[in-house]
Design a binder for these strands. Sequence first.
DNA 1: TATTGTTATACTCTATAACTATA
DNA 2: TATAGTTATAGAGTATAACAATA
Lengths: 157, 157
Amino acid sequence: MEVVKCLRAAYVRDVSEDPAGEARDTAALLMHVTEQTRSGFETAAAEFDLTTAQARALLALESSAPMRSLAEHLRCDASNVTGIADRLERRGLVVRTAQDGDRRVKLLALTDEGRRVRDRLRDAMLAASPVMNALDAGERRTLRGLLAKASASAPSG
Amino acid sequence: MEVVKCLRAAYVRDVSEDPAGEARDTAALLMHVTEQTRSGFETAAAEFDLTTAQARALLALESSAPMRSLAEHLRCDASNVTGIADRLERRGLVVRTAQDGDRRVKLLALTDEGRRVRDRLRDAMLAASPVMNALDAGERRTLRGLLAKASASAPSG
DNA sequence: TATTGTTATACTCTATAACTATA
DNA sequence: TATAGTTATAGAGTATAACAATA
C-alpha cells in the first residue's frame, strides 16, 4: 500500500514537473499495462489448456456466429478459423451447425461445456486483470467511464 | 461525436441502474479494450514488417540486455529468443555482443537503425492506442494515474 | 553441478493461393 | 461472378528435451 502510493505520487509529480516528458512516460506506462494484460490473458487461457486464439474465439461466441464473422473479430484470414474451430470442436466446446437460407454458411455455436469454460475463462481473465484489482469501487467506476469513452470512439469499433 | 456520447451515456446509465451487472459489463468492456489494444499493437508492428514478438523484443531493449532477460520479459522459453534474435539481427536491428566477466552470456543490443525503428514503433503504438486519443488532457491525466496505480500493484510487476 | 545459449522436434497461428459448394 | 468454408503450403512463435560451453 505504501509502495503503491509512493510510486503513484512519484509518477504524477514527474509528469507535472516535466510536461515535455508526458508522452514518453505515457508510452512506457501503456507498454507496461499492455504487457501485463497480455500476460494475464495468456495465463488465464493456459489454465484451461487453451491457446490465445482459442480463448479469443470462445470469448467472442456469445451464442453462435458464422465462421466468417469470427475471422473478422479475430482479424485473421478466414482459412485460419477452420483449424481453430477444428480444435475447439474436437474438445467438445463448439459445434458446427447449418444456417437456414444459405447452405454455404456454417455457424459456430458453443456447447454447454463450451459455455461453462467460457464463463470460467472470463472470470479468470477479470481476476488476472492488472487494472481492476488494485482500485477501489470509485476508481473502478472512473476507469470504466474513461475506457468506455475511449473504446467507443476508436476506429476499430 | 454524437455516437460517442450516446454510447457512453448508455453504458454509464446501465451500470448505475443495475449494479449487479457491473462485473459482467466490466468484463465485456475489458475484453473490448484488450482486443483493440491487441489490434493496434499488431497494426503498428506490421507497419515496420515486424511480428508481435519481434516488436515486443525491440520495445523491451532500452539499451542492451542478456538474451535470458529478454526471455523473461517475453515470458517465453529461452530457446525461442534465439530465433527472434536471429531475425532481428539479420535485419540489422540488433547485434549480439559479449558480456565482460561471463562468457556464457550474450548481450542483445540495439543498433542505430534498431533504435530508430524502436522509436518510430513506439510512436505508432501510442498513436494507435484506443485509450489515449479520444480523451482530453484532464481525462488522460486521470487515466494515467489509475493505470499507474493498477500496474504498480500487479503481481507480475 | 548449475547456467547460458543453441539445436532438433512437434504443435499452433498466420497469410497466400487454389479448390469446392453454394449463391 | 461472387462468397463461405476448406485444403495445401510456408514462415513464425511456442514448449520440451538434449546438447556444448562456461561458471
